[in-house]
């Protein structure tokens, strides 16, 4: 796509983390994602925006193969992470998901204690040799997720007892506890109030230091606030991808401009 070439040129030197080439996704007969090509950089926040049903969440879920859990879903094309095709039969989707963490729309803490929620991933992947190491991972993750101060005295309390914003930060802590390289966030703030949203957004900005973050959002203000790159999806097509500032101030495609100014969507 033509707009893609532009961004590639301007960021030729930065290193690409995820590279999608000619990705098509079908749900049964429904062609949900049409020929998407995109390069997502490391240590960057990339926002996917677009009207409901445009395929941005679907595309996000192809990046950690969560679509595999849906029987009728079929993916074509290549998605490379660090140059490796994640749809190669040799790739274990279970291992992949440990490397590509995901935070969901609604906070979904497990009905376990706060500690066990965070320790869940490290435990199943055997990331800690002993209890002390596990404690350390839990503390580090909770600190990164800006939840440590609120949770350190109640680590054994159930995670479901936290407030909505705290639950979402717990889910983020849970996702970063497996030390992923990419963090996918599917509308992480849509179920949160403005204060919790601000906390999570601040957190996303900090997470950029360590991960490549991809966030799907319905709020264009949020995309403008937290992301460096923005991709606009419409009807399964990637319409425009580029610097967030440029997309919001000077979009090239008339559809992008219509969406941002509120005329379609």
């Amino acid at each position: 796509m033509k707009d893609l070439n532009l961004t590639e040129k301007s960021h030729l030197m930065s290193d690409t983390k995820i590279s999608a080439k000619g990705v098509q996704v079908y749900y049964g007969d429904n062609h949900a994602i049409k020929d998407v090509n995109v390069d997502i950089e490391d240590k960057t926040v990339t926002a996917f925006i677009g009207p409901s049903g445009c395929g941005k969440s679907t595309f996000l879920r192809t990046i950690n193969r969560m679509n595999d859990t849906i029987d009728i879903c079929r993916v074509e094309g290549d998605i490379l992470i660090d140059g490796e095709d994640i749809y190669d039969p040799a790739v274990d989707p279970v291992q992949l998901r440990a490397k590509v963490g995901m935070v969901f729309q609604k906070p979904n803490p497990f009905p376990k204690s706060i500690y066990d929620n965070v320790a869940y991933g490290p435990k199943i992947h055997g990331l800690a040799r002993n209890k002390a190491e596990l404690d350390e991972i839990v503390e580090k993750s909770l600190r990164k997720a800006a939840l440590w101060n609120e949770a350190k005295d109640r680590l054994q309390a159930p995670g479901t007892g936290l407030s909505g914003g705290q639950q979402q930060r717990l889910c983020i802590a849970r996702a970063i506890a497996t030390s992923p390289e990419v963090l996918l966030m599917d509308e992480p703030c849509s179920a949160l109030d403005p204060i919790a949203t601000a906390q999570v957004e601040e957190l996303i900005d900090e997470l950029r230091q360590s991960f490549s973050v991809v966030i799907v959002t319905h709020s264009m203000q949020q995309a403008a606030r937290v992301s460096q790159k923005t991709a606009f999806f419409h009807l399964g097509n990637l319409v425009e991808f580029g610097e967030t500032d440029k997309i919001f101030t000077n979009p090239e495609d008339p559809r992008t401009e219509s969406y941002i100014s509120g005329r379609i969507g």
Binding site: L96, M102, F110, I124
Partner: peptide, 9 residues
């Protein structure tokens, strides 16, 4: 389930 599968379980 999504949460757990998303963590690589």
């Amino acid at each position: 389930r999504d949460g757990s599968l998303g963590l690589g379980a």
